[in-house]
Simulated scan of single mutants.
Amino acid sequence: MPWLFLLLAVAAFAVALNASSMALAVICLLVALAGTVAWVLGLLAQRVGNQSRDDSMMLDPMELKRLRDEAEARRAAAAVTDTAPGDTARG
């Protein structure tokens, strides 16, 4: 779809170059400017849309809580194994 705006802008610019009326040339130049801006915005919107995440991959709050609880349990287990009884420092 953005390429149609570019085609419109090029056609309007070509008409502006060949126009014998100043009013027609100004109108065509404005249309060419608007088409170019629409083309650039369309390309940007397309790029953002392609890089966005899939909504179906989002986690619900219950799943997120379960993952946090699992991570907390792993951290607690790692902390217990790091402080084993035979690891006392003598000073």
Rank of each mutant, 00 (worst) to 15 (best):
E63R: 14
A79M: 09
L29C: 08
M62K: 10
G35T: 01
L41A: 15
G42Y: 06
G35D: 02
D60A: 11
A73G: 00
A38D: 00
D60K: 10
Q46F: 13
A89R: 15
M1F: 14
V80L: 11
D69N: 05
A84W: 09
M57P: 02
L43N: 03
Q51F: 12
P2R: 05
A9R: 00
E72W: 09
C28R: 00
R75F: 12
R53K: 08
A84K: 09
A77R: 09
M1C: 12
A71F: 02
A76Q: 05
A79Q: 08
R74Y: 03
F13V: 04
L43W: 00
L41Y: 10
R74F: 01
L24H: 01
N50Y: 12
A38S: 10
A16D: 00
A32V: 01
F13M: 06
A73Q: 05
W39L: 03
M62L: 07
A38F: 03
L59D: 01
L8K: 06
M22F: 04
S20M: 08
L17P: 07
L33H: 04
R74H: 02
R90W: 14
T36F: 01
L6H: 07
M1L: 14
V40C: 07
P85W: 11
L44H: 10
A78Q: 15
A12R: 08
W3D: 15
L67H: 12
S20R: 09
R68D: 05
A34Y: 06
A89Y: 12
P85M: 13
D55C: 04
S52D: 06
P2S: 15
N18S: 06
L44M: 11
R90A: 10
D82I: 13
L29D: 05
L33F: 10
R66S: 02
L44R: 14
L29V: 06
L67K: 15
P61W: 04
A73V: 05
A19R: 05
A71D: 09
L24Y: 00
A19C: 06
D82A: 15
G42F: 07
A14Q: 08
P85S: 11
P85V: 13
A73Y: 05
V48T: 14
A34F: 13
V37M: 12
L59H: 04
A23Q: 10
M58P: 03
A78H: 13
V15R: 00
S52Q: 13
A19D: 05
M57H: 10
P85A: 11
G91M: 12
N50W: 13
G49V: 07
A84Y: 09
N18W: 03
L43S: 00
A89M: 10
R90N: 10
M1D: 11
A16Q: 04
S20F: 01
A77V: 01
G91Q: 09
M58E: 13
A9D: 00
D55E: 11
F5V: 02
E63A: 14
L41R: 15
A79W: 04
D60I: 09
R53A: 11
A32G: 02
V80D: 10
T88S: 08
D69G: 01
D60R: 13
P85E: 08
D82S: 11
A84F: 10
D82R: 13
A34C: 09
A73M: 03
A45K: 13
E70M: 08
L33E: 05
I27G: 07
L30M: 13
M62H: 07
E63N: 10
R68F: 02
L4V: 14
E63T: 15
E70P: 03
